[in-house]
Design a protein around this nucleic acid. Structure first.
Length: 427
RNA sequence: GGAGAGGUGGCCGAGUGGUUGAAGGCGCCGGUCUCGAAAACCGGUAUACCCGCAAGGGUAUCGCGGGUUCGAAUCCCGCUCUCUCCGCCA
């Protein structure tokens, strides 16, 4: 959420920053509502002050055994009604302002490349060479099906399109990869491992920025109004909701594996084959809660931690800096990591690392106290996939496939899988 | 799902209509004392909003929302959350 103070102070700046994302900020409306709101508050406060004064006087009279003067009581009764009216006005104005603010995305950092579509994203570096095989490379949907480690048909039978099941070596590979990633981040990169609820309340979704704007991409349990998380970022963002973290408690680094649920309504028809885009997938997510001063540096390190995963797996990748129009709703700056996969011959987005600055902190009201006795300030939050499993599995299968239809397991995973090759018939 | 109890400041805990933002204690910060520390003593210690250049002033907040009243932490109603017991259950 953007701060109304900033909008009040420099509406033109905010308008232009939003424009770089292709968003129109209704600044004039906001400013009008804001000034009306402040006026209503002012008047209400004044009347309440009067009433408090009168009531206190009555209290003193009563203490001395005297009656309250009739005319004062009558007058205050009227004042009370005026206060009610002003309070209702204030509440309405508050709600209108709030609902507009909830729909506005974060402002991009200064150095984010300007641009309205993904065409303007910039490749900032590449690691490794895209693998080319000396035999016809199969896409994973063929390869995995032939091996018997992914069953698309039966996934559809259970849950509909874009669901799948894994078995045997495939299921073990995914479990091993998750465990290895969690160990890497928690043991070597300094993150605290979390186990989290994957069903959350409505206000939790608001705090992270998924509601109200992106309700159509979420699954929901109507009866209890619980929502299935699209990423672990959602519950982690809200861990410290409405709290003031004491001095010395930042930075905090977290890592968690959760299933992620996305309806992908908007993407109907895209990537329909294989497991690249599905309704349920596993993801290892890294998350940081940091001092605002440090968030730009923290983003670099977050990205480096995600890159480390690719490097150790021996997956060639490139890092993209997303342009203003392509960064996600709560993000001020985002780098994507795309890994090369030899079968579908594509760069697959396996990680997205974002600095959300104080955007989520404002929504979720997460603050910290820089020093004992000082005023609370909003924290900065960052998140990054470390990594999304299906696309890593795709890349491992497609890049490491052999001419005989088997797949070599990356060395770092072998202690976790307990096997170093998936035979051509591995289900 | 059934029955009961309860939600007060960072924590514990008092408070059933009138200077209660809220006693007391703990914790924390500063000071005195000390070579230093502890103890003791003294002082301070919520958040948000509004007006103001500032100094300062005002308002709100005792789970949330509504009601009664000149006035509500205190009374009434609804909701919510937590705990205990029973039931169910991996």
């Amino acid at each position: 959420m953007l701060s109304i103070e900033q909008i009040r102070r420099d509406p033109e700046f905010v308008r232009q920053a939003l424009a770089t994302r292709g968003e129109e900020g209704p600044m004039d409306e906001l400013l009008t509502l804001d000034s009306q709101r402040r006026q209503a508050i002012s008047q209400g406060d004044e009347l309440r002050a009067r009433r408090n004064q009168a009531s206190r006087a009555i209290g003193q009279l009563r203490a001395q055994g005297e009656e309250a003067p009739e005319d004062v009581v009558l007058e205050m009764r009227e004042v009370g009604q005026e206060i009610d009216v002003l309070e209702r006005q204030t509440r309405e104005l508050d709600e209108r302002i709030h609902s507009i603010l909830l729909e506005l995305p974060n402002l991009p950092r200064e150095d984010v490349p300007r641009g309205l579509s993904e065409e303007e994203n910039i490749v900032v570096r590449q690691w490794g060479e895209p693998k080319s095989l000396d035999f016809p490379a199969k896409p994973h949907w063929d390869l995995a099906e032939e091996m018997g480690i992914i069953d698309f048909q039966r996934g559809v039978k259970l849950s509909g399109s874009r669901f799948y099941t894994m078995s045997g070596y495939g299921a073990k590979l995914e479990r091993a990869t998750i465990a290895w990633m969690l160990d890497l981040h928690s043991r070597e990169h300094g993150y605290t491992e979390l186990m989290l609820p994957i069903l959350v309340r409505r206000e939790v979704m608001e705090g992270s920025g998924n509601l109200p704007k992106f309700a159509d991409n979420l699954y929901r349990d109507e009866e209890d109004d619980l929502w299935l998380i699209p990423t672990a970022e959602v519950p982690i963002t809200n861990l410290y909701r409405d709290e003031i973290l004491p001095p010395g408690s930042l930075p905090r680094y977290y890592v968690a594996q959760t299933p992620c649920f996305r309806r992908e309504k908007t993407a109907a028809g895209r990537d329909t084959r294989g497991i690249k885009r599905v309704h349920q997938f596993n993801k290892v997510e890294m998350y940081k809660i940091v001092d605002p001063e440090t968030s730009d540096d923290e983003l670099d390190r977050l990205l480096a931690d995600a890159e480390d995963v690719c490097q150790r797996l021996g997956l060639a990748y490139r890092v993209l800096q997303l342009c203003t129009g392509d960064i996600s709703f709560p993000s001020a700056e985002t780098f994507d990591i795309e890994i090369w996969s030899a079968g579908c011959e594509e760069w697959l987005e396996a990680s997205s690392c974002s600095n959300c600055t104080d955007f989520q902190a404002r929504r979720a009201n997460i603050r910290y106290r820089p020093a004992a006795g000082s005023r609370p300030e909003f924290v900065h939050t960052l998140n990054g996939s470390g990594l999304a499993l299906p696309r890593v599995i795709i890349a491992i299968l497609e890049n490491n496939q052999q001419a005989d239809g088997s797949v070599i397991i990356p060395e770092v995973l072998r202690p976790y899988t307990g096997f170093d090759i998936i035979p051509a018939s591995g289900g």
